[in-house]
């Protein structure tokens, strides 16, 4: 099992070749987690203790509206990172994450990573850099959604 996790972590762009940390340290923070179709991964307002590497399936980030129910705002798939609220105080989810299909993930304990980063600021800087890139790509895609590019 941990071999599988080790392989996934070491190949994923967010961790690949990450300096200042051993694979074992990371494996200690990670576990495999499978979500069945339609299940909830996390909900808005809950504590954001984890993030997820999506291995397969599809996850919708959505917002629950009082009159229309849940509305998906962005879909994530294999290779995508789900969740970054664990990085920032107050460590609370801003959206709901629902598995649209059966979804395999590796769940990573945010607290655990935060502690590693606190102990090793160089690791913290590098990891923050990589997460920023993910957030930038996601922001740019969101900006395009705002422009109405199919108009």
């Amino acid at each position: 099992m941990s071999n599988f996790i080790a392989e996934q972590l070491s190949e994923h762009p967010i961790f690949k070749g990450l300096p200042f940390i051993t694979l074992n340290d990371m494996i200690d923070c990670a576990s495999e987690k499978i979500f069945s179709r339609g299940s909830t991964i996390f909900l808005e307002g809950e504590d954001a203790n984890y993030f997820y590497l999506i291995l397969s399936g599809a996850v919708d980030l959505s917002l629950h509206t009082h009159n229309k129910g849940p509305i998906a705002i962005q879909s994530l798939h294999n290779g995508d990172i789900l969740g970054w609220s664990w990085l920032f105080s107050p460590f609370v989810w801003h959206f709901d994450a629902l598995a649209r299909e059966k979804t395999n993930t590796i769940r990573i304990d945010g607290k655990c990573i935060r502690k590693l980063c606190k102990d090793n600021p160089e690791l913290g800087y590098e990891l923050m850099n990589r997460f920023s890139k993910v957030m930038l790509d996601r922001l740019n895609a969101t900006r395009l959604q705002l422009v109405d590019i199919y108009g």
């Binding site: 599809a58 919708d60 229309k68 129910g69 849940p70 509305i71 998906a72 705002i73 962005q74 879909s75 798939h77 294999n78 290779g79 649209r100 895609a141 395009l144 959604q145 109405d148 590019i149 199919y150």
Partner: peptide, 23 residues
């Protein structure tokens, strides 16, 4: 297929079309 803004009945992908390309 993807849409910019979904309705509750939509069970497909949400996001701009460019996000489909790497997949």
């Amino acid at each position: 297929v993807t849409v910019d803004s979904a309705s509750p009945k939509w069970h497909g992908q949400v996001g701009v079309v460019t996000t489909l390309i790497p997949r």
